[in-house]
Design a protein around this nucleic acid. Structure first.
Lengths: 172, 172
DNA sequence: CCGAATTGTTTTAAGCCTAAAATGTTTTCC
DNA sequence: GGAAAACATTTTAGGCTTAAAACAATTCGG
C-alpha cells in the first residue's frame, strides 16, 4: 500500500503545480554502473594495446576513425566523431604524423581545412591491431548472450537519445 | 536457410575443436555505443560542474567518495574505488587540500598510510553540488522508464561481471 | 631477530584533455 | 566590394592521467 506522501508526489508530478524534491537514486546508481563498466573495459583495452603494440588508446581510436574514411577526414570531423576538443586532435595528429602513421595536407579548395589520412604503414598497423582488439572486446563481453547484446544495444540507443535531448535542452 | 559455412561455424563453436575467425562485430558495436553514452554524459556533467560550481569532474568524484566515508579513506582506497592510478590521486588530493576541501593526516598506527577526509567546507560544498548533480543525471536519463532503468542495471551488472572475469583471466 | 617480500605513497616523464583566446580563411549579406 | 559573421585550426595555460621507478614502512618466514 502506497504511503500518503507517495500519493502526494504522484499528484504533484501529474499536475506539475508543485516542485517536490524527487528521488533519483536509481538513475544515479545506473550512471555510476555505466561509468564503472566503461572505465573497466577502457582500462583493460588501454593496457592490452600498450603491452601488445606499444600504442595508446587515443592513437588507436583516431586511427580507427580514419580507417573507415579512405578519402581522409578533416580535423573537425575527427574531433566531432571522437567527441574530443579540437586542440586535442591537433596534438594527437602531430604525433601520429611524426611517427609516420598519418598523412596530413591542406585542402586544395579551402585553405582552412587540414585533411588527414592513414599512410600505408598506418593502415597496415591499424588492421593488425584491430583484428586482435576485436577478440579482446568479444572476450570482455563473453558472458552476454546474443539476446543480452541486442537488448543492451536497444537500451543504450535510448540512453544516448535521452542524453542528447537533455544536452540540447541546455545548449539549444 | 543457413549457409553451409554457418553450419560449419556452429559445429566448430560447439566442439571447440577448430578455431575459426568468428564474427564479433555486434560486441564491437555494443562497446562503441557504451563508450559513446558514457562520453556524452560525462562531458555534459563536466561542463555543468564547471559552469555552475567552477569545479572539475575528478575533484567532484573524489569528494563523492569521501562523502560516503565519514571516517576518511586511505589514498589506496580512493585509488581503487575511483579506478585510477595512485599517482593520480596524490595530485588530486594535493590540490583539494590546498583549496581547503580536504584534510589529510598520517595514520597513527601505520606511518605509510595517509587518511583523507572532507573538511566542513568540503562537505558543505559537496552536498550543495551533489543535490544539483542528481537532477542533471535524472534529466539525462529522463527518457528511460523505470523498467528500462532496472533492465539496464541488470545487463550492466552482467557486463561488469563479464569484463572483470576477462580481466582476471589475463592478469590472474 | 633479520632479511625479503609486501604494501602505501610519491615522483618522474610523457602524453592526454579541456576551455578559451588567438589566427587565418571563407562566407554572408548589405 | 567590404565589413561582419562563421568556420577550421592552433595556441595557451592549466589540470588530469598513466606506467614505471623510487622511497618508506610494515609484515612475514626462517
Amino acid at each position: 500500500m502506497p504511503a500518503v506522501s507517495d500519493c502526494i508526489d504522484m499528484l504533484d508530478s501529474e499536475t506539475k503545480a508543485v516542485e517536490t524534491p524527487e528521488d533519483h537514486a536509481e538513475e544515479l546508481r545506473l550512471w555510476l554502473r555505466l561509468l564503472t563498466c566503461t572505465t573497466l573495459i577502457e582500462g583493460e583495452v588501454r593496457g592490452r594495446l600498450r603491452q601488445r603494440f606499444d600504442v595508446t588508446l587515443p592513437r588507436f581510436d583516431l586511427m580507427a576513425q580514419l580507417d573507415k574514411a579512405p578519402d581522409g577526414m578533416t580535423l573537425s570531423d575527427v574531433s566531432k566523431r571522437m567527441m574530443v576538443s579540437n586542440g586535442n586532435v591537433t596534438g594527437l595528429v602531430e604525433r601520429l604524423v611524426e611517427s609516420g602513421h598519418l598523412d596530413r595536407r591542406t585542402s586544395e579548395t579551402d585553405r582552412r581545412v587540414q585533411v588527414i589520412r592513414l599512410t600505408k604503414l598506418g593502415r597496415a598497423e591499424f588492421r593488425r591491431m584491430a583484428a586482435e582488439h576485436e577478440t579482446w572486446i568479444a572476450d570482455l563481453f563473453a558472458d552476454l548472450s546474443p539476446k543480452d547484446v541486442r537488448e543492451l544495444m536497444r537500451l543504450l540507443a535510448k540512453t544516448k537519445g535521452s542524453a542528447q535531448k537533455s544536452a540540447a535542452r541546455r545548449r539549444p
